[in-house]
Design a protein around this nucleic acid. Structure first.
Lengths: 356, 356
DNA sequence: CTGTTAGCGCTTTCAG
DNA sequence: CTGAAAGCGCTAACAG
């Protein structure tokens, strides 16, 4: 039939025939080429698959993940690619769903080292870009150097402290709330969390403190309320905590709230820092690690599409505000770590090995 | 080949053959059935298409849209459906993209009455659910009664005011910033915005005020900073504004900020209300219209999947806090409007006609 | 400019 | 339990 040409090669069909075809289509209720048949024929789907954590719906509650998604969406909208959110629900059927999804490539929001979904992605044979970690053969990685950033922020947060503590994301998939000292970072299966713990430990040791004395509180979710109650527990310890580095601004805000209730002055009796430089962190004069998750999302999308982006998005920086005792609005740039260099000749913001 | 059975009807193939097939697959690098071919054969894709406003990336910056998405995601994760975000970029090619996308049904985040994307969805012949509006033959609608809710909140916000004003979403797709009196709501092409303006006008008239005196400020984006500067202009008018109903909490927070700078006391000299009952609205004692966008997202997804949900999500309510001059934390339930009744026999939270 | 043919990879009869 | 054949709807290549 000429009908295919009518829809695809407008120039290779006479206006007359074209009109006839369109008319017939209208009568028959034909809605144009079927996309599924098309992608079978073409061998591609013009769709990117996005895999969001252990359960899809957690991700939408997480402003960082949403920002990352916005970056992917930007590139997809520009290139005309669909963005297919894969229905991950934390069950055994997740792997099946990954292999049953019609996409050209995958983008994965950071997950545990041993998430079976990663095997399913490998098994699908399609290109994959992972954000944050874990590092995997065949997967491209988009990530800041979380360890270096945590180290830099740890140095600010813990400077002068005697009883430092860390407020962490969950340490394993059980997501149990934990409060303990001397946690071994290497036992943590979430690579981003692990790298940050390692970075904080680096700072503790650089400051001459003992890691085994450092209390780590891990919340079940990235939730301000939970952070507040953990902080309250920390303030009630025999030797009360005097510095807390939190892995998100939400957690840090919970700490600030608890500090207000406990009438602790920040930063004099308590130094606090967060992560991701949210609007709220600026509002509350909270020192925070800044990174451009939107740019990272866009980068991940470009890599997934097989583009070779020459320009890297900004790397991380430490934004120092009043909560860690330095003059407000001072901004210290970092990122010239051994792993990722800034400046004219900086390396591309991509790694496919070794970070973990 | 027996290979298909290996993957689909595990019971109809001997363990031995199955093993052989799997082994061969591994050697040949066969990654399992191709999803595109599968959906061609099955005639369905197990994927829901989501269309987000005039440009995809705006939506991710809009916490309300994100909450709605979370609701869709919840249902998709549960049912094993993919959630395909259609790459809408505000150009002529958007319609093409809609028809080229392999999905079983569409969910549309509210857009203008005449958005051509809607025609493309109609033309695709696939089921569609629209959130907020516009109302269209063949599309299911999930929406609160924005007019009734705006009326109820208008009555609280404008009570006792002499110079009321409204802070609105854009009035047309040009998204120009506007500040004018006596706007005719019926000229506004965004149905949600139109309904809310109509509701506020109903309140103005019920309070014996003149709509032609009511200043309407429309921001280009849902942005606190822009709201602040519009509010500042309003405060500098010959007869300064003494009540502002805003269509989002973000806008209302900008007003509160401007009020603080202008040393206006809230609610004594300025009454303010917002919309969507965000965390920040509670924090700042801002009266706000509450609706459960997450439940609406979930409902939209169930409808798109052809389910007939018996239970409707909660309807809207007016949450009165200190910013409109009533005792804090008092909560007035509404929703028993002519259009959508609450209570034991309430109508399903779905309409497919007439709201606009 | 138009019509025919083959085949993308799969699953589902239907026979063996 | 396994094999063969047909066809989902499309498009690229080739002939007319």
């Amino acid at each position: 039939m000429t009908v295919s040409y009518t829809y695809n090669r407008v120039d290779r069909v006479s206006a007359e025939s074209r009109e006839k075809v369109l008319q017939a289509a209208a009568e028959l209720g034909y809605a144009g080429p079927d996309p599924a048949a098309r992608s079978l024929r073409y061998g591609n789907t013009r769709t990117l698959g996005v895999i969001l954590g252990e359960h899809l719906t957690y991700a939408f509650d997480n402003p960082q993940a949403v920002t990352f998604l916005a970056g992917i969406a930007e590139v997809c909208a520009d290139r005309g690619y669909g963005m297919l959110i894969v229905p991950i629900a934390g069950g055994a059927e997740d792997s099946l769903r990954v292999s049953e999804v019609a996409v050209d490539a995958f983008i994965i929001w950071t997950t545990t080292d041993d998430d079976p979904v990663l095997d399913a992605v490998s098994g699908s044979g399609r290109p994959a870009v992972i954000h944050g970690g874990p590092v995997r053969a065949g997967f491209k990685l988009v990530s800041i150097d979380n360890r270096a950033a945590a180290f830099a922020m740890g140095m600010k947060t813990f400077a002068g402290a005697h009883r430092p503590a860390i407020l962490s994301f969950p340490l394993d998939s059980s997501r149990k709330t934990v409060l303990a000292a001397g946690i071994d970072p290497d036992t943590v299966r979430f690579p981003v969390t692990r790298q940050r713990l390692l970075g904080y430990r680096d700072a503790i040791e650089a400051l001459g403190l003992d890691w085994n004395d450092v209390v780590v509180g891990a919340t079940a979710t990235n939730n301000e309320g939970e952070a507040r109650s953990l902080a309250e527990t920390m303030f009630a310890l025999e030797q009360p905590i005097d510095a807390i580095a939190a892995m998100s601004d939400d957690l840090a805000l919970g700490v600030l709230d608890a500090a207000t209730s406990a009438q602790l002055t920040v930063p004099e009796t308590l130094s606090v820092s967060g992560w991701d430089n949210s609007r709220a962190s600026a509002l509350h004069q909270l020192s925070s690690v800044a990174q451009n998750l939107r740019a990272q999302g866009a980068l991940a999308a470009r890599l997934a599409l097989g583009e070779e982006p020459g320009l890297a998005p900004d790397d991380w920086s430490v934004v120092v505000r009043a909560s860690t005792g330095e003059p407000a609005t001072q901004r210290t740039e970092h990122g010239n770590t051994p792993i990722r260099r800034m400046g004219a000749n900086r390396e591309p913001f991509v790694r496919s090995d070794g970070l973990s």
